[in-house]
Computed example of a mutant assay.
Amino acid sequence: MVEGRNIQKQYGDLKVLKGIDLKIDRGEIVTILGSSGAGKTTLLQILGSLDKPTGGDVFINGTNVSTLRGNQLARFRNGHIGFVFQFHQLLPEFTAIENCMLPGLIARKSEKDSKERALKLLNYLGLSDRLEHKPAELSGGEKQRVAVARALVNDPLVVFADEPSGNLDSRNQDELMDLFVDLRKQFNQTFVIVTHDQHLADKADRTVHIVDGVIVD
């Protein structure tokens, strides 16, 4: 469902990715594990269409996203890809439900439909009593769950998560990974998660290890 073919990334003389081949199936939870500077975040950004490879191609559900440009790429990303980041990236002036609704509104869905979907997800994630709270009024774990709900609001094919537990304590780290597992069971959701935490990686279906820009066994 997600496939990278011979993915390369180079900045000047620095080769960050040196020919990555990777396939991820629908409903699979895959962690990308590696030390700082190994290339794991660069790979995630390329697979998630946030960056272009120097060489190679990325396919999501049969679409070569490496060839998409401008508004076409933006529409594909908004409609089919979700993102969860370490520092949540919630808009501080908006409430939890407003933050969650935004991708739906950007996709030009009605306010009613966007709100209904956001309510369903936030309720499912145990945030029914925090809907009108702004990010500054939420705990770290609550903010990350709002970010997860926002990533899911357009029913994406895949969610890419970049160190999603890096800003959480150990209890919330475990809860977040358990949440990903539950969402896969409930919605057959696909997750690709960058982490440096072996404990989290152990809960995934499969772990991809990157060392110096290549995948190693």
Rank of each mutant, 00 (worst) to 15 (best):
V2N: 01
Y11M: 13
L14P: 02
I20T: 01
L22E: 12
I24Q: 05
G27M: 02
G27N: 03
V30I: 14
S35C: 08
S35Y: 15
A38W: 05
K40W: 00
T41G: 02
L43W: 06
L43P: 00
L44K: 02
Q45E: 15
I46H: 09
S49C: 13
P53I: 03
T54D: 01
D57C: 02
T63Y: 13
N64E: 06
V65P: 08
S66W: 01
T67A: 12
T67F: 07
L73R: 13
R75P: 00
F76L: 05
R77Q: 06
N78Q: 09
N78I: 05
H80A: 02
H88A: 15
H88F: 15
L91C: 00
F94T: 11
A107K: 11
R108C: 02
K109P: 04
A118F: 04
L119V: 12
L119H: 08
L122I: 08
L122A: 09
N123V: 03
L127I: 04
E132F: 01
K134H: 06
P135K: 06
P135E: 12
E137C: 04
L138W: 06
G140H: 14
E142K: 04
Q144I: 04
A147I: 07
A151P: 02
L152S: 09
L157D: 12
V158F: 12
V159T: 05
F160T: 05
N167F: 08
N167G: 03
Q173D: 12
Q173P: 04
D174G: 10
E175M: 12
L179F: 05
F180M: 13
V181N: 13
D182Y: 15
K185L: 06
F187P: 01
Q189K: 14
D202P: 08
K203G: 03
K203E: 03
D205K: 02
D205H: 05
T207S: 15
V214K: 09
D217A: 14
